[in-house]
Amino acid sequence: MAVTSSHGSTRTWWQQNQQTLTPWLFLIPGMFMFAVYVVWPILSSFWISFYDWNGLRAPDGSSTAEWVGLGNYAELIGDDAFETSLKNNILWLVLYMLAVPFGLFIAIFLNQTVWGIRMYKSLFFFPFVISQVVVGLIFSWFYAPNFGLLYLLTEWLTGTGTAILADPNKVTYGIIAAGLWPQTAYCMILYLTGLNNVSPDQVEAARLDGAKGFKMLWYVILPQLRPATFIAVVVTVIGALRSFDLVSIMTTGGPFGSSRVLSFYMYEQALSEYGFRMGYGAAIAVVLFLIMMVFISGFIWKMVRDEKEGY
């Protein structure tokens, strides 16, 4: 013991603590970025949400913000536009989930060896590759009154054309449908890679036991696709909560605000031409953040649990 301790005293401080310090050293750049670009903006959003501020500073550089405490949150409660946005966000969350079964269906349909299947797969994947803005434009032309394909089709069928984006009761469904197009493709590709890893032995064994059709899918294939399903649900939930681009491109929240979602309402209040209510926008951002946190903590909790159980 004496030898080791005397030997230890000749080791420098760095040598003694190398093992514990190294991982932190590697983490520092990442943690720095995370703190500056993620944690700090979140905290400052919380902070700004307690102020009434139009984003302007006086010539001497002092802020024109005024402390209102929870005033912005109190206003949110009675705000019809906020209620509409919240409702639409829920609608998005629920209906956007359809992308998961749709994606699974297409993936199973495409998971076969036919000549040229790779080309079909890439064609189905295509909508995910093009930008959301382009998707939004294509669909707004598709829905456009007077010259859009859907309008002309409904006019031909029923005599009066339906302008989805002009109808406050249909507009959100119209936008979600546009969003489902690329999202389905995304889920499909996740399931296609998942299907590659389905063990042929188990399928063979199940077949010998007489399983087929829906039972085969439900009891044999789907359990093996659990990791793919998990990821598909995660990206779809986050995609639904982030649904900004399509709303902005297709309707800018209209007609009269009926297709707003929280992220768009936040942008409108804080940064758009008629906005610059930084505090109120920040309050909406905080609410959206808390909603997202419910899901994100759920996902993290599940991942940690799975890791412990050794999935």
Binding site: A144, P145, N146, A166, F256
Partner: peptide, 15 residues
């Protein structure tokens, strides 16, 4: 004009 809520001002000009 019906559906004006979904029409840009330029498209209305076309009408």
């Amino acid at each position: 004009t019906a559906n004006h809520a979904a029409i840009d001002w330029q498209d209305a000009a076309a009408l």
